[in-house]
Nucleic acid binder design. Structure first.
Lengths: 215, 215
DNA sequence: GGGAATAACTGAACACGATCATAATTGATC
DNA sequence: GATCAATTATGATCGTGTTCAGTTATTCCC
């Protein structure tokens, strides 16, 4: 049974409407920005009534997820593939995180709204929720592999170490997109350095030859 | 010249109005919640016209800052004082951070809105902006002192190490108040452990006797 | 103190997200 | 294919944050 024709007329219509809504939202957000786009505009462009929109999404912000999910899946897959071809844990993480920072840089205002939503929407089990969990699990898997390689200490659960690492990613996204206190160019090097410091430790006994440039 | 009487009638009226607005917002947010409180209610309770409110704040969310600032100043001062009586860096940080987590726990829904605003409002040089900077600087000062004690490696700027530590605080606040994926009881111990791991490092060479409990 | 200039205030009006009673469409049953 | 229950769609309507043209209060100057 061909995928496109599965189900009755009802289900096909619903899928098509959701598709049109997603496409309309994506296009308008890209050209006008999130706040500046009204729900009515999206409905008009999608060819549905204003009330219909909210049968498909709980609120306007959920449209961000709808438009972001497919891109996020692609970024995650690409990052995962590149990470698989990389040795060092920090470098692997930067393959993943770097994909997203580069993507966010293309439309900072929209990305700010997306990230805000990612961090503050309580989890529905929808598509992006699952993806987020997969992402966290993959970071934990990378940690476990690094433990097996003897790169990371083995007296920690991979999940706990993954959280510690992910915290830096979240923080740099906040500083860059959220409060806008960090410059775009500083994000990748800064985040990489933060991850290195997480692995090395701040403790005095771990002092390395790799000095910070004093300002 | 007594402080209360400084300036002309205009300025005094403005101060009083701001005071009434702040008090009204605080009371209503506390009893009804942020979303459930309307701007008109606040205006009525404060005894000002609906338009007047927006001469004092850019938007409704800014009222969160107005109501939070004095509390935040107090929490910061208390935490700073307790930290001064504490030796270990992680313990010092927990004096500071713990004050805020305890405060946030008293009204999670409202705190979620506050934290969201803290992380996503681009900095105006207003009261809370300054306080945030002071907070970051104080963490850096604690790091510098720890470096002087030989507790933290000296090849890093205090600011950079402070960022790395603060990232964990931000992340745990996000997980707890933002996505609501972390339980309240797990926050203090989890955050403390994360800070310890930041100091110790995740690297294999730093393995300690202090094992995680495997789940 | 009177009058002009300026700053502050006000509530009606606006725009937009969301809802809901009603209408249209689809699928099941005969 | 006609009948009817169930599902889906619709746009007028509502509540709320925010604005703005008009009004009032304060200050300044003589």
């Amino acid at each position: 049974m061909p995928e496109a024709a599965v189900g009755g007329l009802r289900e096909r219509n619903k899928r098509e409407k959701l598709e049109r809504i997603t496409a309309a939202a994506r296009e308008l957000f890209r050209t006008k920005g999130f706040e500046e786009t009204t729900a009515r505009e999206i409905c008009e462009r999608a060819g549905v009534g204003t009330g219909t929109l909210f049968l498909y999404v709980r609120d306007k912000r959920e449209l961000l997820f709808l438009t972001f999910e497919s891109d996020a899946r692609r970024l995650f897959a690409e990052g995962k593939a590149e990470a698989a071809r990389t040795r060092d844990l920090v470098a692997q993480l930067m393959c993943l995180f770097g994909r997203f920072t580069a993507y966010y840089a293309k439309d900072r205002a929209l990305s700010k709204a997306i990230v805000q939503e990612l961090f503050f929407r309580t989890h529905d089990p929808g598509g992006l929720g699952r993806l987020t969990r997969e992402f966290a699990e993959h970071v934990a898997d990378l940690v476990a592999a690094a433990q097996a390689r003897g790169e990371i200490r083995t007296d920690l659960t991979p999940a706990r170490a993954a959280m510690a690492l992910f915290a830096h990613y979240a923080y740099w996204m906040l500083g860059w997109l959220g409060t806008e206190m960090l410059a775009r160019e500083s994000v990748e090097p800064g985040l990489r350095r933060a991850l290195e410091l997480q692995v090395e430790g701040l403790g005095a006994q771990h002092e390395t030859r790799n000095h910070d440039t004093r300002r």
